[in-house]
Nucleic acid binder design. Structure first.
Lengths: 133, 133
DNA sequence: ACATTTCATACTAATTTACTATGTTATCTC
DNA sequence: GAGATAACATAGTAAATTAGTATGAAATGT
């Protein structure tokens, strides 16, 4: 039960964007220099963040990334979801049918827990995180 | 961010113990038959659960396991902790010093999240889970 | 034209997970 | 006391996941 490095890196990078002037975009290399993050990995992560609208990109020279939403509208859950990290049980996945033919109480339990975690992670917004700086 | 199979198996097995007569112990093989769990894996898991007092064991023939605490005093957090699954960040581990020399806001963030998750998982007790049967 | 930077895919080393295999020790029943 | 049963203990291992790297193409500013 850990926060993946992917998620933490995304969070750090987004925080860097949030703290920068929002006029001009920040390039991957600029972000990675100050935050000492692996650039090629961050590139991949940003492409995912772009697909869900968390960032927008400017192509070419002097290009880079800007936040796609207000800092009050980007939550830790949004980040995790963008990276494909949703909560679940590793046994009772919807398609494995571990409990086929049995009355499975666990599916509803994981569901309940998942809902709680999602709403909790959704309550942690980027503005709160950068307010700690 | 998933519940490991280890945790789910432990939960299923403990639920089986909770639902059984608490007079006589249940053996690994009995538990695994009804719950279709891998016996040797469950053995290892039960040894960990024993170390933290969640179960007690009776050695030898006609032996097996019984719950070590009341069902209202065994939480999902207890189970996860017994299995060594605590919350954390995969980057900001206490000894990696990822942020050495920087003011690290993330450590306190993971700490805050960890505390929330721990108290949430602590609120989910075995009696609540088996009440769903 | 050229440098810069995003975009896209493929590959890989290390770690973790979810087990299995093998053997030992303790206890009950006969 | 012999044998069956079941916990105890450690080692090994195949598959999946994670956390990256490598290579190259496409777009844009100077």
């Amino acid at each position: 039960m850990q926060i993946s490095s992917q998620t933490e890196y995304a969070l750090r990078a987004l925080a860097a964007l949030a703290l920068a002037e929002h006029e001009k975009p920040l390039s991957i290399s600029e972000i990675c220099k100050t935050q000492k993050l692996p650039p090629k990995y961050i590139e991949q992560i940003f492409r995912k963040l772009k697909k869900t609208g968390l960032v927008i990109s400017i192509h070419g020279s002097k290009g880079g990334y800007k936040l796609g939403k207000d800092i009050s509208e980007i939550s830790l859950r949004d980040i995790m979801a963008s990276l494909g990290e949703n909560f679940g049980s590793s046994v009772c996945k919807s398609n494995t049918n571990y409990c086929i033919g049995l009355p499975c109480i666990y599916e509803s339990l994981w569901d309940e827990i998942g809902k709680h975690l999602n709403s909790y992670f959704d309550s942690i917004k980027l503005d709160y995180i950068i307010s700690k700086y």
